[in-house]
């Protein structure tokens, strides 16, 4: 019993130390965001310069006044919600068809999707760019939304979930004269809320932090998302240390909040079927 108690304390101490070490960069970022010191990053000479004399919100204010940060927030939310909505509709329907509708070609499409899971997005970006350019949607919200709608991974995930929905439920609805689409949206979808939330949060966090593809396709400032905005902000002109840190903190907070609210679903998503990167 004594041994167990000591072990418990040891685990608390080690976790606290390692946890602080792990969080240090982020704590540093948030603390510096409130630092009033008007120092350029290169002018810092000692650790003392990092410690704020008092806390101020002026850095946060200048992030929103020097660049149209609110607009970038709006853009990013538009891309994130636009993508998520489309992703949920397109892939859940496909996943349902593959799991519960025994149509001719079902097996073929399923195998095809499993094979396509291997193809890395980075391997097709060049020609995907040309496709988007040909469609005339370059430098519009559609350039970031439309190419993300189809996802082999999400189809696979929805299919796995729908396999567990009892077929009797669907048949009962059909005997009552419900059409295939109304059965799906009124009977099946309500049973699948957890998997919808999981996909929502995976895709939302992914789209919020997305940099590579938006950077390629969104060239005018009016369409920047937050990630491109902070990259431009911190490299374009010599801003004060605290202001740069504030810009980083500002784009991190919303996604932290979303995560904290829905972490159960997020963690289930990656823990049980976390094969997003395959």
């Amino acid at each position: 019993m004594r041994r167990k108690k000591i072990l418990k304390i040891v685990f608390y101490v080690v976790n606290t130390l390692v946890g602080l070490l792990f969080l240090f960069p982020l704590l540093f970022m948030f603390l510096s965001a409130f630092n009033p010191a008007r120092t350029l990053p290169t002018q810092i000479g000692s650790f003392g310069d990092f410690l704020p004399e008092y806390l101020t919100a002026s850095n946060l204010v200048s992030v929103f006044t020097r660049i149209p940060m609110l607009k970038y927030f709006g853009n990013t939310l538009l891309y994130a919600f636009g993508t998520v909505l489309g992703v949920l509709v397109v892939n859940s329907m496909a996943g349902y068809a593959l799991a519960k509708i025994n149509f001719k070609g079902n097996r073929l499409i399923y195998n095809f999707i499993v094979i396509m899971l291997i193809i890395p997005f980075e391997g097709i970006t060049l020609t995907l760019y040309l496709v988007v350019k040909t469609l005339g949607i370059l430098d519009t919200p559609f350039a970031v939304i439309l190419p993300s709608l189809f996802s082999c991974f999400y189809i696979f995930m929805f299919r796995q979930f729908f396999l567990g929905v009892p077929t009797a439920l669907i048949e009962a609805a059909e005997i009552d004269g419900s059409g295939a689409f109304s059965t799906y949206f009124r009977i099946v979808v309500p049973t699948a809320v957890p998997v919808f939330i999981t996909v929502f949060i995976l895709e939302f966090i992914g789209k919020w932090g997305d940099y590579y593809w938006p950077m390629l396709t969104l060239t005018s400032e009016t369409w920047f998302n937050v990630q491109i905005a902070i990259k431009e902000f911190s490299t374009a002109s010599p801003y004060h240390w605290g202001t740069v840190m504030a810009s980083l903190a500002v784009v991190t907070v919303p996604v932290l909040v979303v995560f904290l609210c829905l972490q159960k679903y997020y963690i289930e998503g990656i823990a049980t079927q976390g094969i997003k990167d395959m």
């Binding site: 509709v89 397109v90 892939n91 329907m93 496909a94 349902y96 068809a97 593959l98 509708i101 025994n102 149509f103 001719k104 070609g105 079902n106 499409i109 396509m116 193809i119 391997g123 097709i124 060049l126 020609t127 995907l128 040309l130 496709v131 469609l135 439309l146 190419p147 709608l149 189809f150 082999c152 189809i155 295939a180 799906y184």
Partner: peptide, 28 residues
């Protein structure tokens, strides 16, 4: 009837998958 329903459910995925995945792979 089942075939038609199945393919209708697959349709959005097939359209987007073709335009934004298959076509780029073939082009590449």
């Amino acid at each position: 009837c089942i075939d038609r329903t199945g393919w209708l459910f697959m349709l959005p995925a097939i359209v987007f998958g073709t335009v934004f995945l298959i076509v780029p792979i073939v082009m590449c």
